[in-house]
């Protein structure tokens, strides 16, 4: 089951570029939360701060607190420990090219030293079923490489890989932006099914997508969070003029 995320006074920089400014936000557990905004507004940086991926870039810097399930991830834990609890799906599908489908899904466990084959088999099957890929790949799990799948399948494989470590939070950074419409709708269905079990944070530039899958939506602009409310409210009756302008397509 997922846990909630509390973000307080979060600031982030790339070199001298202040990409996130004073973000305060509570993300509810076991729901999908969408982050929207024009490109370059900091929404991707924000999710990368939630699993400490932002700091993998040597010029990046972060201040502020992020509590995931009450644990202060910057003060009380190492990045590796956080990332085991917070799964991430990237914009472009990035399966491990030299690994089989099976190994891709099991990677998070195997590479962390888990070796019970019986349990691994079960988890791979369950994760692939959860990511709606099982029926398509079950016959050549160990024969085909992850890279041999189509783009949409690869992205679902990446979701399965993230699910296999049973994360409490699932971050998705524009997971469908590199995919065709059919694959996109499959991914959306998937998010819809998964959000009761995991806390999902999805970054998207597609407002319809946010409206379809998320209960809560945050609007980012120029490194600041302009508004955070229920999706319904954001899309029907936003309280900030800038949000309204963005929603109605008056800029961006």
């Amino acid at each position: 089951m997922g846990v909630g995320i509390e973000v307080a006074n979060l600031n982030a920089w790339y070199g001298t570029n202040h990409t996130l400014q004073d973000i305060d936000l509570n993300i509810p557990a076991n729901h999908a939360t969408a982050l929207i905004g024009p490109s370059g507004c900091g929404k991707s940086t924000f999710v990368r701060c939630l699993n400490r991926m932002h700091e993998t870039n040597p010029i990046a810097r972060v201040t502020g607190t992020v509590l995931i399930g009450g644990l202060d991830i910057y003060a009380d834990a190492k990045p590796v420990e956080i990332r085991r609890r917070v799964g991430m799906v990237f914009q472009r599908p990035n399966p491990f090219p030299t690994m089989s489908i099976y190994d891709n899904v099991a990677a998070g466990l195997k590479l962390n030293g888990y070796s019970n084959h019986h349990v691994l088999d079960e988890i791979v099957e369950k994760s692939l079923k959860n990511s709606a890929l099982w029926e398509e790949v079950k016959d050549d799990l160990k024969k085909k490489s992850g890279a041999s799948l189509s783009g949409g399948q690869q992205q679902r494989l990446c979701i399965a890989r993230a699910l296999a470590v049973d994360p409490e939070v699932l971050l998705m950074d524009e997971p469908a932006s590199a995919l065709d419409p059919v694959s996109t709708s499959k991914i959306e269905d998937l998010i819809f099914q998964l959000k009761s079990q995991y806390t999902i944070v999805i970054v998207t530039h597609n407002m319809q997508q946010a409206a379809r899958v998320a209960e809560k939506t945050g609007f980012f602009l120029n490194g600041r969070m302009v508004e955070f409310d229920s999706t319904h409210k954001i899309f029907t009756n936003p309280s900030d003029k800038r949000t309204e302008d963005y929603i109605t397509g008056r800029f961006g």
Binding site: N51, M53, T56, V80, F90, F96, A107, N112, R161, V165
Partner: peptide, 10 residues
């Protein structure tokens, strides 16, 4: 590919 591995907490 590196990011994918790091994001798994490896």
């Amino acid at each position: 590919v590196r990011e994918a591995a790091l994001a798994l907490g490896v």
